[in-house]
Simulated assay, not measured.
Amino acid sequence: MLTEQIRKLEAQPLTLDVTPDGGGKPVKTVLDGGALLNLIVAFTPRPNDLPAALDELSRGNPERFAQARAAGSVQKEGLFAHGLTNSIACAEWAPGYTEADVLAAGRKEYPAWPDSVLAQAPQLPFQYPVCGIWDVADRAEIQRVPTAGAVPALVVSGTFDVKTGASWAKGVAAGLSRSTSVLVPGIGHWVVPQSPCAQQVLASFFARPTAPDTSCVAGLKPAPFTIIPK
């Protein structure tokens, strides 16, 4: 279903006037294959709604994705630090891979997707032209050296995080000999703001860095996926 929708929207993008959830003037929203992919990656605050959103889209109702796209275009001032983001991405990520590398990796994993979608790294579209202007020092090599140490550390990740996958936490924790690793079920990116349990674990870590209380995690279960009545 996902491949079909990405191919369809990339060939024939949808243009809609969408009123953001918080109200205000309608926003002209373009939904193409690349936008859909980025919205899926960014959908992590409500990952349980994603299957329903895709099902609705396949039935000709793009409302959930269009609303998410519109919301992203009316971010409040100061909510997103574009300068900081580009300074990090252009110094630490982009120099480590060429544009050809990105396309080749995409073709390997998703051979049925259009090159126009695969050529842009998710969440970092058109990053190479941006970095050509932003012009910061290349720090890719040094940033790829694993961190090692004995300072107490807390590694928190969510099972539904599609930006910084939970599997990465194992690599991070491996070099931190006094680390505590916590995997929170059913949560996407931004784990602590969304999970009261993760907040408790963090507070416990501040109180006892070498022995935080992680007991609340054992009782957690992912919320059920949103079901669409047939």
Results as ranks from 00 to 15, higher is better:
130 V>R: 13
104 A>P: 08
27 V>M: 03
115 D>N: 14
46 R>Y: 13
65 F>R: 00
100 A>D: 11
165 G>A: 14
12 Q>N: 12
56 E>Q: 09
125 P>S: 09
174 A>L: 11
132 G>Y: 11
176 L>Y: 02
35 A>E: 08
107 R>E: 03
4 E>W: 11
152 P>K: 05
200 Q>D: 13
181 S>N: 11
93 W>H: 14
38 N>S: 09
55 D>T: 15
122 P>Y: 05
15 T>F: 01
34 G>D: 01
159 T>F: 11
16 L>C: 06
29 T>G: 02
189 H>W: 07
200 Q>I: 05
72 G>P: 01
134 W>C: 08
118 L>R: 11
7 R>S: 09
164 T>V: 14
79 L>R: 13
156 V>T: 09
111 P>I: 09
115 D>K: 11
6 I>E: 00
164 T>W: 04
207 A>W: 03
145 V>S: 08
225 F>K: 15
211 A>V: 11
153 A>C: 05
35 A>K: 13
132 G>A: 13
82 H>P: 11
166 A>M: 07
227 I>A: 15
169 A>S: 15
19 T>G: 04
218 A>R: 03
44 T>S: 14
54 L>W: 02
175 G>P: 06
74 V>Y: 00
92 E>W: 04
6 I>S: 00
160 F>W: 12
214 T>M: 05
215 S>T: 13
69 R>A: 13
42 A>N: 07
15 T>C: 01
156 V>R: 03
22 G>N: 09
25 K>Q: 12
131 C>K: 10
130 V>F: 09
205 F>Y: 06
35 A>C: 06
166 A>G: 03
164 T>D: 05
134 W>T: 13
24 G>Y: 08
16 L>D: 01
152 P>M: 05
192 V>E: 07
41 V>Y: 02
34 G>Q: 05
86 N>K: 15
40 I>N: 01
82 H>Y: 14
227 I>E: 14
11 A>W: 04
36 L>C: 03
219 G>R: 06
72 G>R: 02
190 W>M: 14
164 T>N: 10
78 G>F: 10
35 A>R: 14
65 F>K: 00
101 D>L: 11
139 R>H: 09
134 W>P: 05
57 L>T: 02
166 A>P: 04
22 G>E: 12
137 A>C: 04
32 D>W: 07
59 R>N: 08
42 A>H: 04
107 R>I: 03
100 A>G: 10
117 V>K: 06
145 V>Q: 12
155 V>N: 01
52 A>W: 05
181 S>R: 15
2 L>K: 01
68 A>T: 06
57 L>H: 01
142 I>T: 14
39 L>Y: 01
146 P>V: 02
70 A>Q: 00
48 N>P: 12
126 F>A: 15
43 F>T: 02
73 S>F: 12
43 F>Y: 12
102 V>E: 08
151 V>S: 08
30 V>Q: 07
189 H>T: 07
53 A>C: 03
212 P>K: 00
218 A>T: 04
226 T>Y: 06
